[in-house]
Structure formats: C-alpha cells, structure tokens
Design a protein around this nucleic acid. Structure first.
Lengths: 110, 110
DNA sequence: TCTTATGCATAATTCTCTTATGTATTAACA
DNA sequence: TGTTAATACATAAGAGAATTATGCATAAGA
C-alpha cells in the first residue's frame, strides 16, 4: 500500500479516468477496479469515495442511474460532457506535475 | 503553478532530496532552489517549509548550524546519516507511486 | 450459522498545507 | 533619502482532503 499522503489530491483524477475508460460504473465497482489496476496498492476508502462521487455529481461532472439487483441497490455513475472535459484537464495536470517532480527530484519516471 | 492538492505529501521528499543533491542549505535557499528546478511551478510556502524542517530536525533526519551574515541569521540544514536513508526511501516510494498511477490512469509518464 | 463480501452513506477526527501575522535586515530604486 | 522588494526566520488560525469509525442492509460461502 502506498503512503496515503501521496494519494491526496489524486482521488478525483483516478475516479474520473477510470470512469472514462470503463464507462458506467457503481461505487464499489470503482474501488475494485482501482485495486486491480494498482495491484492492490491503491485501496480507495468509502469515506473518501462516496463524498467525492456526490461532489462530482453535484458539480455536473457525473450523472447517476439507480438499479436494483435482487434487493440490493446500485448507483451507477457515468461522465457528463463536462465530466469528459474535466478528465482530460485533470490527467494533463497530473502528467505535468509528474514532469515537474521529475526535474525537482532529479529522477527518471515512467 | 501546480494544483496545490497534488503537492500534498511530497514536501518532505522534495526538501530531503534537494538537500541531498545540493548539500548544506538554509530555508530560504531551499525555496529558491525548488522554484528554479520546477520552473516557477512549485513555490514552497514558509508556513509549510519551516515546520517541516523543524520536524525533520526533531526526528534526527537533519542537523543545523546557525551562521550570522552581517546582522542576519541563517540556519543551515544538512542530512544526518538517518536522513540520508530516509531520502532514498522517500524517493523510491514516490517513484513506485508514480508507476502505479501510470497503470491506473493508463498514461505514459516521464 | 457465522464470517466475508457486496453496497451505500455520513460524522468525527486527523493530517497537511495555505493564509495571515509578526519581526527584522538588506538591497534597489525613485 | 524614503519607500518598496527581497531576504530570513517563525508560529497561529483556518481550510481541505483524506482516514477512521459507525451505521444499515443483502448475498454468498464455509
């Protein structure tokens, strides 16, 4: 598991990008996908994930549909057009940040 | 200027690595060096830097020498042996984190 | 039957940083 | 020569983003 401090500020970026690549997903599914993609190194906590999803929805970046599987409710999230723009922005920001950090730390990344 | 959220958790790593590469430095000098290396994109604030330096010193990672230039006091910091180990650890952690993020975000970094 | 996994949600707390404030010296510019 | 910007330290108040704790409920597996 990575030092949790480094993760700060990357949660929105992760959620948005995973939603872009995979399409329609529900919260729990996102945590599992991230866990898988990160080889168990990034474990999203519910206390961070759900408020983030709600916030992005309130800002018009995500839209939701609720589905009932058996007796269990799932809330599916997908990107709105604005959300799609935001992903690009966030990912480029992150890439730019990493390049800068590479210079400051004098290390080769990637 | 980078999104300040992304910076969270990287301050210790930055300070330690810059001190390792440059040797003995004082606080203000560190901010200028980082500003330069990052092409003005990372501007360390005093409110974050000084407490971090004090903390690392208290933990035995840094040692200090005070010098008076004219009537102005400078506090020089340098790495202790433990500090030197910590740099390696922090930088590898960061590199590992970036690799993981590359997988999760499906982007080429570096 | 009991534990683990699935699935959502929110409140309390912690941690790290920004912003604001304070003090003081030195250089530059007008 | 007076004012501003740069140098140099430090700490306190506040904000923001996460962790941890808690709560509820269904489904699967041992």
């Amino acid at each position: 598991m990575h030092s949790p401090e480094l993760l700060k500020g990357t949660l929105q970026t992760i959620v948005l990008k995973v939603l872009k690549d995979h399409g329609r997903m529900y919260g729990y599914e996102i945590t599992q996908r991230v866990k898988e993609l990160s080889d168990d190194r990034i474990l999203l906590t519910e206390g961070a994930l759900y408020p983030t999803l709600h916030k992005l929805e309130a800002e018009g970046m995500l839209r939701t549909e609720t589905e009932t599987i058996g007796k269990r409710v799932r809330k599916y999230y997908s990107l709105t057009p604005q959300g799609r723009s935001l992903v690009k922005e966030r990912v480029s920001e992150f890439v730019a940040f990493i390049k800068t950090m590479g210079n400051v730390l004098q290390v080769e990344l990637g």
